[in-house]
């Protein structure tokens, strides 16, 4: 695995370069780190508020009801209905999507059509609502402009793209 070498290599590169250039690395590290505390604290209200709202929606069963509503649409384009909840939850909640992907892979098998589709869907899009909440929350953006529309539309394209690509490549 290359990935276990990646982060140590970055640290190595940064510290060696800094030392060669005679930068007081430890002092600069501490100075930059402080900003992290401030960002994390200003983030908490945004994240907490959004997560509670999403949790209420999910726990009440309303999420499931919405998914059922759209099921016929899904079978129309030839995608298995089992994948629909994942497609819906992926932009909204990262942890829920990950557990759903795991569940689909466990139930249908990693090499099944549904298992592969879930894998691609999970890997090729990200949790839009979380990213917007965190990125804009950290710097106190109140007026988001078109950000949410752009993010959700891109998710829709990404999800359709994964379905089409997996159908073409694997079935």
């Amino acid at each position: 695995m290359i990935s276990i070498w990646l982060i140590p290599s970055i640290i190595l590169l940064v510290l060696v370069t800094a030392t060669v250039k005679r930068i007081p690395s430890y002092e600069v590290f501490v100075e930059g780190s402080k900003e992290g505390i401030q960002i994390a604290i200003s983030l908490l209200p945004f994240l907490l508020g959004m997560m509670v709202s999403i949790a209420i929606f999910q726990a009440s069963g309303a999420m499931e009801a919405v998914v059922k509503l759209f099921q016929p649409l899904m079978s129309m384009i030839g995608a298995p209905a089992e994948i629909l909840p994942l497609a819906f939850i992926r932009p909204i909640s990262g942890t829920a999507a990950l557990s759903m992907t795991t569940e689909l892979i466990r139930t249908f098998g990693p090499d099944s059509f549904i298992g592969k589709l879930a894998s691609v869907m999970q890997g090729s899009t990200d949790t839009t609502l979380y990213i917007i909440t965190v990125y804009f929350g950290a710097i106190g953006i109140k007026r988001m402009g078109d950000a949410l529309k752009v993010g959700l539309l891109a998710d829709l394209v990404g999800i359709i793209a994964s379905i089409v690509i997996v159908i073409i490549l694997f079935s």
Partner: peptide
């Protein structure tokens, strides 16, 4: 939410420190 923020705080503190060095070093 509190746990996520806390673990995010750790990551933020570490990487922003390291990246500050990278910035000053011209990387």
């Amino acid at each position: 939410a509190l746990m996520i923020t806390l673990s995010l705080a750790g990551v933020l503190i570490f990487w922003l420190g390291l990246m500050k060095i990278a910035e000053e070093a011209g990387l």
